[in-house]
Nucleic acid binder design. Sequence first.
DNA 1: ACAATGTATGTCGATATCGGAATATATGTC
DNA 2: GACATATATTCCGATATCGACATACATTGT
Lengths: 127, 127
Amino acid sequence: MARAATTTDVFNAVAEPRRREIIGLLSDGREWAVNDVVVRVNLAQPAVSKHLGVLREVGVVTVVKRGQQRMYRLEAERLKPIYEWAKTYEKLWTGQISRIKQRAEQKAMDRIARENQSDENGTRGDK
Amino acid sequence: MARAATTTDVFNAVAEPRRREIIGLLSDGREWAVNDVVVRVNLAQPAVSKHLGVLREVGVVTVVKRGQQRMYRLEAERLKPIYEWAKTYEKLWTGQISRIKQRAEQKAMDRIARENQSDENGTRGDK
DNA sequence: ACAATGTATGTCGATATCGGAATATATGTC
DNA sequence: GACATATATTCCGATATCGACATACATTGT
């Protein structure tokens, strides 16, 4: 078995920097003709067509014919799986505390929480 | 030029499903020996070592020797770029405001397109 | 019908992958 | 030292990639 095809996954499709660049362009919500993209990206037209083809296969963009042009549009919700996946790990880096410290803190917190059972009633008397 | 190396990018490293699976395992914050991973994932040891090597090269995991074992640990903050990237597009699929706006724009586009050419499929039109 | 424009497709070369198998490199144990 | 365990490294075959280039296809205008 070899490397997975770029079209098997949103993850694989988006791994290519050029493709991310193109997604960035289309993120303005407008429809983009292939040539509009070619002008902005430093790539020849066939390369752009292929990248758009990959993005289309995984549903990240949709095409519609308009005259002799093909208008590509971003289907951003297809990126959601990536967002959700990464979001799963967000809690592991938020706060500047490292994970190890977090674990230590967690244990300390548990202990303190137990100890505080005796101190349940509001010593925080501001008011 | 060929496909980018899996070690060039967090995006590329994470494009591989097995690697994401391994990341999922390590997300409990503990240190994992290679064999611990081998037992959980349906892969031979060399394959696992290689995957861990890739993840290590991009900094997603770190290693530390302990006896004859190599303990791997997740460095979740290295996934942040992916989260941030995807987050940029979150607003495009959540919230009704952008959705409505997008819809309106799309309808305008469609109308313009229709005006520009009423002939989609070989039907000899007027003009 | 012909030319021009916009886009897709096919071929090619260089490169890298992924998993398996075999082997090498520690490290620990008797 | 001999041996077992844990892991890394190397070689292999099959497969895909990506960009360049050439070319085909499609649509529009004259």
